[in-house]
Simulated assay, not measured.
Amino acid sequence: MKGLIGKKLGMTHFFSEEKGQIPVTVIEAGPCVVVSCKKEQAKNYTKLLLGFQKAKYPYHWDKQKLESEEPVKGKRLNKPQTGIFSKAGLYPHSVMLEFRVDSKDKYKTGDVLKVEDIFKEGLKVDVRSKSKGRGFSGVIKRHNFHGGKKSHGSMFHRAPGSIGQGTTPGRVIKGHPLPGQYGNKNITIQNLEVVKIIPEKNLLLVKGAVPGAKGTLVKVQETVKFRGREFGK
């Protein structure tokens, strides 16, 4: 699956002569560096490891290897993470994600993948990101329960109510909607259309909404369930 790592910048609208006003999500997709590309013999697939956003200069990194690189502000990496880039001879990046590809012949360590190399306007993609965390929430907010009467004298307002039967089965059925952690989960939105690509700014405009707040890391890849035009054709 072709794809890139990116960052959600926010939402806006795009005007098209054919479709009029289109709500779009602006994603800063790439540039991503190829860290490694190797075939998993046990699972019979080729995995492509990409790096995104340069990390802060590690304390234990040999500065003689990369004299031309300047330190950047950001997250520091531990030794195992830094060792992956040290082995490849690349500057450490704070984000690493894997993508499945058909063949490893097309990619070499150190190659830089940009948004115009992977995506085209009018294609369908899947976007995966982490939704906003809303903490511990009740059943009305978390599961859209109706709730009880708001009138005077009612003793039932926002409680979940009955959660099971009596002696039989004598337990709460698994999966029953109850209060708990709401949000902060990885969600994939499928079949979003690429409306516009701005190569000079590494921007990708996709139709519709993408989970998460501004600055959330996203994984954009070719769609799994094709609807309409296929990826790359």
Rank of each mutant, 00 (worst) to 15 (best):
M1E: 01
G3L: 09
L4K: 11
I5E: 06
G6W: 01
G6H: 00
K7D: 11
K8E: 03
H13S: 14
H13W: 08
K19F: 05
K19N: 07
G20F: 09
G20V: 07
G20Q: 09
Q21G: 04
Q21T: 14
V24T: 01
V26F: 08
V26N: 07
E28S: 07
E28K: 14
A29K: 06
G30Q: 02
P31E: 04
P31Q: 03
C32L: 06
V34S: 08
V35T: 05
S36K: 08
C37P: 02
K38V: 00
K38I: 00
E40I: 00
E40H: 03
A42Y: 07
A42W: 06
K43N: 07
L50E: 09
F52C: 08
K56G: 05
D62W: 11
Q64G: 12
L66P: 01
E67D: 14
S68Q: 13
E69I: 08
E70N: 07
E70M: 09
P71T: 10
K73S: 13
G74V: 10
G74E: 10
K75S: 09
L77K: 07
N78P: 02
Q81P: 03
F85P: 10
S86T: 15
S86E: 15
H93K: 05
S94W: 12
L97P: 00
L97M: 14
F99S: 12
V101N: 06
D102I: 01
S103N: 15
K104W: 01
K104Q: 08
D105K: 12
K106G: 02
K108M: 05
V112L: 15
V112E: 13
L113Q: 12
E116Y: 06
D117T: 02
D117C: 04
I118E: 01
E121Y: 02
G122F: 09
L123T: 14
D126Q: 07
D126F: 05
V127T: 11
K130G: 00
K130L: 00
S131M: 03
S131G: 04
G133S: 13
G133M: 05
R134H: 14
F136Y: 15
G138N: 06
G138K: 04
V139P: 00
K141C: 00
R142M: 06
R142A: 06
H143W: 15
N144C: 02
H146E: 11
G147T: 05
K149M: 12
K150E: 14
K150T: 14
S151A: 09
H152R: 08
G153W: 03
S154C: 12
S154R: 07
M155S: 11
H157K: 13
P160D: 11
P160N: 05
G166I: 12
P169K: 14
P169I: 12
P169S: 12
G170R: 08
R171L: 14
K174C: 02
G175V: 08
L178D: 02
N186C: 00
I187D: 08
I189G: 01
E193L: 03
V194N: 04
V195H: 01
K196T: 02
I197P: 10
E200R: 15
E200Y: 11
N202E: 13
L203E: 01
L204P: 08
P211C: 00
T216A: 14
T216Q: 09
V220T: 11
T223Y: 01
T223N: 08
V224T: 12
R227T: 14
G228V: 02
G228L: 02
E230F: 08
K233N: 09
K233R: 09
